[in-house]
Design a protein around this nucleic acid. Structure first.
Length: 412
RNA sequence: GGACGGGUGGCCGAGCGGUUAAUGGCAGCAGACUGUAAAUCUGCCGCCCCUUGCGGGCUACGGAGGUUCGAAUCCUCCCCCGUCCA
């Protein structure tokens, strides 16, 4: 990787990046070939990582690939302030215990992307804690209120009359001081972090350092193709989800979104991605195959190639051929569903059965689905309430949910 | 402290005394179609019971009371949220 030309390095870095400010400075600093100090701060609030977060992590990894030092900085001190970014209200600060717990969760998930050997994990309390009041005053003297109010959320809240506590104004300085403490060459963050990252440049300058280069990564669009990926929108893929689930979720994205994901969630170069596009255009590559490859690549990152193969196979079997999933749970007929018995059969109430084995959330829902003909037993839609199940293993399906039901007539 | 406006099902948002489990949109679920999808079309979209019926019951329109044969719709008090004036 280090044998790449300067242009190639820049291209590698710029791929999937929203902004690089300023690119020319990065070029200059890359020239001597010394490892740069790349700093990325993480707010220890929401440690449940999904693919949206991995865009930034992947970019960090790219810097590692190029031989640079990457600092994974946990903002334990700033977490106590509560980052006002994107908030229209004051954020409740976290306790020490919460912060520590979240930091651990982070570390457990983050190394699926980052190279653990090349990653330095740090806490900004290390240098923020010992600061004296006069140090803080000195830090604050480097910036003006007017500039601070340029920031969107501050000015909006100020105009609207929503309270802004003074300590919130300090947040960008704390973050900027991190850059000073580390003498960072580069700081990365999401596009929403742009303001804070840029303050870092000014403060570093004021402390006689070379201002850091700022790189922002775009927000990842969620599976729905519209809103940004977020847990609350339920359009996300969590990095700890099982391979099969990840695979299936990824296959559900629209074809257009696939290119965006290729750019932000794989290490393929832009030229390689273009080749794929061209091959689909010429009919040489099937779009579905292309999406399968994407899903496989992402699943491999968080599990393994073998898991990805298994997931792909499972996808083929269940979704494309409509066969029973390997992971379909095997369950007994719930007692409450049994209406009658024979020597080699069991008569069940279909609605109670589907609820009892977890395919339907409520009796009413089961009843509706039954009337819609959505309940299948051994591949045949069943609309009868009372249904005779032959002894043995019966597969019951309601939409995407499956269960293998063990029908044991002999036991009374 | 004062003056208005508002709180409806996961969300947005109609309804303003009676076919109202509550229009419509979004989200969701199922079915059809397809290359998995997306898009499109169709049905569903509170819970429970009986069961295959335009069945029965319960709960629901911020909370608590009240008026009425009957209230999400009217009245009273309370809580909460916005806007404006002090």
């Amino acid at each position: 990787m280090q044998s790449l030309s300067l242009d190639e390095q820049i291209a590698y870095i710029k791929k999937g990046m929203a902004e690089l400010i300023p690119e020319q400075e990065l070029r200059e600093r890359l020239k001597p070939g010394r490892p740069l100090c790349v700093k990325v701060g993480f707010d220890p609030t929401a440690p449940d990582i999904h693919l949206g977060h991995t865009v930034l992590l992947r970019k960090m990894r790219h810097f590692q690939d190029l031989g640079h030092r990457v600092i994974f900085l946990i903002g334990d001190m700033t977490g106590m302030i509560g980052d006002p970014t994107g908030r229209n209200a004051t954020r409740p600060p976290l306790t020490r215990e919460e912060i520590n717990a979240n930091a651990e969760t982070y570390k457990a998930q983050v190394f699926k992307i980052l190279d653990p050997v090349k990653t330095e994990v740090g806490f900004n309390s290390a240098w923020l804690d010992p600061l004296k009041f006069q140090d803080v005053v000195r830090l604050c003297s480097k910036y003006t209120l007017a500039r601070l109010l340029e920031r969107d959320d501050f000015s909006k809240r100020f105009k609207d009359g929503t309270p802004i506590s003074v300590h919130e104004l300090l947040y960008p300085f704390a973050q900027a001081y991190d850059s000073v403490a580390l003498n960072a060459d580069v700081e990365l963050g999401g596009t929403d972090q742009k303001f804070n990252l840029l303050v870092g440049r000014e403060i570093q300058r004021a402390y006689g350092q070379l201002p850091q280069i700022v790189g922002t990564t775009p927000l990842l669009v969620g599976l729905d193709g519209v809103e940004k990926m977020s847990k609350s929108k339920d359009n996300y893929v969590g990095v700890t989800e099982p391979a099969e689930v990840m695979f299936r979720k990824l296959m559900s994205i629209g074809d257009d979104l696939m290119w965006n994901y290729y750019e932000l969630l794989t290490d393929l170069s832009l030229t390689a991605i273009h080749t794929l596009k061209r091959r689909i255009g010429s009919g040489d590559l099937h779009p579905m195959q292309c999406k399968i490859d994407l899903a496989r690549s992402i699943v491999t990152d968080f599990h393994s190639a073998a898991d990805a193969d298994r997931a792909a196979e499972e996808f083929n079997r269940v979704v494309r051929r409509g066969e029973v999933p390997a992971a379909a749970p095997q369950v007994a007929v719930p007692e409450g569903a049994v209406m009658g018995r024979g020597p080699d059969w069991l008569e069940v109430n279909l609605e109670k059965l589907t609820v009892g084995i977890g395919l339907a959330p409520s009796g009413s829902e089961a009843s509706r689905k039954r009337k819609e003909g959505a309940i299948e037993i051994d591949g045949v839609p069943v609309r009868d309430v009372r249904f005779r199940l032959a002894a043995g293993l019966r597969t019951v399906r309601l939409g995407k949910k499956w269960a293998i039901v063990r029908v044991d007539a002999s036991t009374s």
